[in-house]
C-alpha cells in the first residue's frame, strides 16, 4: 500500500472546548424576552384641551391605597379591579340613542364598510402614591376590554380573533373601528408617600 493511513486527530478534548464555550454563553447572555403593555404618550405640546362631553367619558381614579373609583364624572362608585374589564367593555360597546352610553358615529372604514364607532374615552387618573403594580393591573384590564371588543368584531367580520388576523388592512381597519382611547391625566400630588 502506497498510501499512508491518515492520522486521526485526537478529538478527546473537543468536548471540553465546547463545554467552555457553552458555559461562557450561559453566563454572558440572558434569556428574557421583552414583553409588555405598549402605550403611546400624548405629544408634549397640548393643543387646546379637547372638550369631551361628560356622556363620552368613563373615569377611572386610582388612589394612593390602590382603590378604584369608576364611572361617570358625576356618578363615581368604588369598584373592585375584577369588575373593571366588564365595566370598560360595556362602556365602549355600541349602544344607539342611549344617553347612558357614549355617542356613536357612523364611519366608512376600508375593509369593513360602514361601521359604528364609539366616541367614548376612558380617562385614567392615578395618584402619585399609587403602586406601579396596581397601575399596570388597571392598564391591563382596560387593554383587555379593548382587545375583547376587537376580538368580537374580528370574529363577526373575518371569523378569527384579532390576534390571528394575518391581513394588515383588516387589522388596521379593526384598530380604527375600536381605538385604544385611554387618556391619562397628570397625577395629583396629594397623598404622596
Amino acid at each position: 500500500m502506497a498510501r499512508r493511513a491518515i492520522q486521526e486527530i485526537n478529538a478527546g478534548s473537543m468536548a471540553d472546548i465546547a463545554f467552555l464555550l457553552l458555559i461562557f454563553f450561559l453566563v454572558t447572555t440572558t434569556m428574557d424576552v421583552d414583553r409588555g403593555i405598549a402605550r403611546r404618550l400624548p405629544p408634549p405640546v397640548e393643543d387646546e384641551p379637547i372638550e369631551v362631553r361628560e356622556r363620552n367619558t368613563f373615569v377611572v381614579l386610582v388612589n394612593h391605597a390602590d382603590r378604584l373609583l369608576v364611572g361617570k364624572q358625576t356618578d363615581l362608585r368604588p369598584m373592585d379591579i375584577s369588575q373593571l374589564r366588564a365595566a370598560a367593555k360595556d362602556f365602549l360597546s355600541i349602544h344607539h340613542d342611549d344617553p347612558q352610553y357614549p355617542e356613536v358615529e357612523e364611519e366608512y372604514i376600508d375593509g369593513l364598510g360602514e361601521v359604528w364607532v364609539s366616541k367614548g374615552v376612558i380617562s385614567l387618573q392615578n395618584d402619585r402614591g399609587t403602586s406601579y403594580d396596581m397601575y399596570i393591573q388597571v392598564q391591563n384590564e382596560l387593554t383587555a376590554a379593548v382587545r375583547e371588543l376587537r376580538d368580537e368584531m374580528a370574529r363577526r367580520h373575518f371569523g378569527v380573533r384579532f390576534g390571528q388576523l394575518r391581513d394588515e388592512t383588516a387589522a388596521r381597519a379593526i384598530q380604527r373601528a375600536i381605538p385604544v382611547s385611554i387618556s391619562e391625566a397628570e397625577p395629583q400630588t396629594i397623598g404622596d408617600r
Binding site: 414583553r35 403593555i37 402605550r39 403611546r40 404618550l41 400624548p42 405629544p43
Partner: peptide, 18 residues
C-alpha cells in the same frame, strides 16, 4: 413619563411578565 414626553419619546412599553 413627563420627561419622556418632553423629549418626544412617545412610544413606550411597560415591561411585564406574563
Amino acid at each position: 413619563k413627563h420627561e419622556l414626553r418632553q423629549a418626544n419619546a412617545l412610544r413606550i412599553n411597560y415591561n411585564t411578565r406574563i
